[in-house]
Every structure is written in C-alpha cells, then in structure tokens.
Amino acid sequence: MDILITENGLANLRDFMPRECAQVMTNNSAHASYRDELNDYFSNACKMGGQTPPLLQEALSWHARFKENGTMLKTNSCVV
C-alpha cells in the first residue's frame, strides 16, 4: 500500500519502513480520539523489538472493549 486515505486524512506511505508507516498512519489518518492510544500501543510494541512487533493481548482488548461498550477507547468518552 502506498497511500492510505480515510475521512480523517491522508497518509503517504511510500519510501517508509513498517515502523515509520505505523507512525505516519496514526498521525495523519487515525481519528484524533484514538491517536494517543495508538501511539502508546506503538511505543509499547517497539519495546519488544523486531520489525513489526504485535502486542496481541492489547490489540484484541480493543475489539473486546468495542463489543462491551460500543467504543474501542479505554474511557467511555464519546468519539467526535
């Protein structure tokens, strides 16, 4: 994928390594309500090492929160 376009912005991913792509996608295309949590996830994942380290339990917890609360945010604040 070279370019990601969402309703929140455009992320030009050409010439970036996977870790750099994650930061560009978060900062340019993710909804503002999720950016801090996505950046926290990214920082924690980078501590594991490797090219694209996953934190499976944390990643899956986002889905569980959505099923329980209707939002992936850790708080029950409304997505704008």
Rank of each mutant, 00 (worst) to 15 (best):
D40K: 12
F42V: 08
Q57R: 07
A59N: 14
Y41E: 05
H31C: 12
N39R: 04
G70P: 02
F16E: 03
M17N: 11
L38G: 04
L4F: 13
M48F: 04
A22W: 01
T26Q: 11
T71A: 02
F42P: 01
N27K: 09
E20C: 01
R19Y: 04
S61N: 15
C21W: 00
N28I: 00
Q51L: 10
T75C: 06
N39G: 04
P54G: 13
W62R: 10
V80H: 05
N76D: 09
S77L: 11
Q57A: 10
A32C: 07
E37V: 09
D15T: 05
R19H: 05
M17P: 03
G49T: 03
S77Y: 08
A22S: 07
G70D: 04
I3A: 03
P54R: 13
M25I: 14
E58Y: 01
V24P: 00
L55Y: 03
P54L: 12
S77T: 15
N76S: 09
S77G: 12
L4A: 11
D2V: 02
N8M: 06
S77K: 15
R35M: 08
I3E: 05
N69M: 02
Q23P: 01
L73W: 04
V80M: 05
A22D: 04
A59F: 15
M25Y: 03
I3H: 04
Y41Q: 04
R19M: 03
L55Q: 13
T6K: 03
C46G: 13
F42K: 09
G50R: 01
Q23Y: 05
I3V: 13
N8R: 06
Q57K: 07
G50T: 00
W62H: 09
T52V: 14
G70R: 01
L13S: 01
E37W: 11
Q23V: 10
M48P: 00
G70C: 06
P18F: 11
L38C: 11
E37H: 11
F66Q: 05
T71Y: 00
T75L: 05
M1D: 10
C78K: 14
S77V: 13
L60Q: 15
F66W: 07
A30N: 08
M48K: 15
S33K: 03
M72G: 12
E7C: 05
N44W: 11
S29P: 06
W62L: 14
R19E: 08
Y34E: 12
M1T: 11
S43H: 04
T52A: 10
A22G: 08
E7I: 01
M17L: 08
A30M: 15
P54I: 13
N69Y: 05
G50D: 03
E58V: 02
P18V: 09
